[in-house]
């Protein structure tokens, strides 16, 4: 029943976007986001929208999944839009409704900010929809690896994320199992005062913690038995492959960034 719950929202596929190296996707996304707000020149905005639409169409992500992943952020964008509409009083009056006056500046600002926010989150969503959490972790580990020079525990951080990814489904299952066992013993989680409800968590929380500690201990022993002593001297089974396509993506994004700077300056 719970076996299909997984962390992240990855949708399996074999699109161009799926096949890109996670490093180019991450760096590309970062540049795209950083420069998105740099210029309001129509040409630049058209290019940005173009990149977004192109990314979406090559990702082959069904529209439904895309919008599902945007649900929460959609609300925030909508609120931003409303705020701009009602608070901004630049430009001409578009219409008046009781005490609320909407100015043209509000509309354009609202659309500009909301639209860019939408694109920004949309791009990030497309990244997580087409990249497995494991690949993401790998990409991040490689990108951050220069930080090792300053003793930043890059490997350890990445390893921690990867173990969390591995055990997330197990933990969910365990929670469901313990909850059911306690429900079978008559525990009820749905009625009573708030304090009572907090108290009902204890029969789930305590066994869950105990089991997790036991798991952690057994896992540590198993890892030790398998010769794990930290990142030093370790080789990696997962290899990332930088392809021509990745270079192309980075070039396009760089061109976009340059365009952003130019349109801003001119």
């Amino acid at each position: 029943m719970l076996e299909h719950i997984a962390l992240g929202q990855y949708l399996p596929g074999s699109s161009v976007l799926h096949r890109l190296d996670p490093r180019s996707k991450l760096v590309g996304l970062l540049i795209f986001m950083l420069f998105l707000f740099i210029s309001r020149h129509p040409l630049f905005l058209v290019v940005a929208i173009g990149i977004f639409i192109w990314t979406f169409s090559v990702s082959k992500v069904p529209l439904i999944y895309f919008f599902k992943s945007m649900r929460l952020i959609g609300i925030i964008i909508f609120i931003t839009l409303l705020l701009q509409l009602f608070m901004n009083n630049d430009g001409e009056v578009l219409f008046q409704f009781f005490s609320v006056t909407v100015y043209s500046g509000g509309l354009t600002e609202g659309l500009l900010i909301g639209g860019r926010l939408f694109i920004l989150v949309g791009m990030a969503s497309l990244l997580t929809l087409t990249t497995t959490p494991v690949d993401l972790t790998d990409g991040l580990e490689t990108l951050f690896s220069p930080l090792k020079k300053w003793r930043f525990p890059v490997h350890e951080m990445a390893f921690m994320i990867s173990i969390a990814l591995r055990f997330f489904p197990t933990l969910i299952e365990e929670t469901a199992r313990i909850t059911k066992a306690q429900m079978a013993r008559g525990a009820s989680f749905s009625h009573g005062s708030p304090w009572k409800r907090v108290k009902t968590i204890i029969p789930i929380f305590v066994p869950l913690i105990v089991q997790s500690l036991k798991r952690a201990e057994e896992l540590a022993v198993a890892m030790e038995a398998r010769g794990y002593v930290g990142g030093e001297g370790r080789t990696k089974y997962r290899q990332l492959y930088w392809k021509g396509l990745d270079t192309l993506v980075i070039s396009i994004i760089t061109a976009y960034a340059v365009l952003g700077v130019l349109t801003r300056l001119l």
Partner: peptide, 10 residues
């Protein structure tokens, strides 16, 4: 409690 990595091959 002894499988560490997110996939079988890993």
């Amino acid at each position: 409690n002894q499988l560490v990595a997110p996939t079988v091959a890993d």
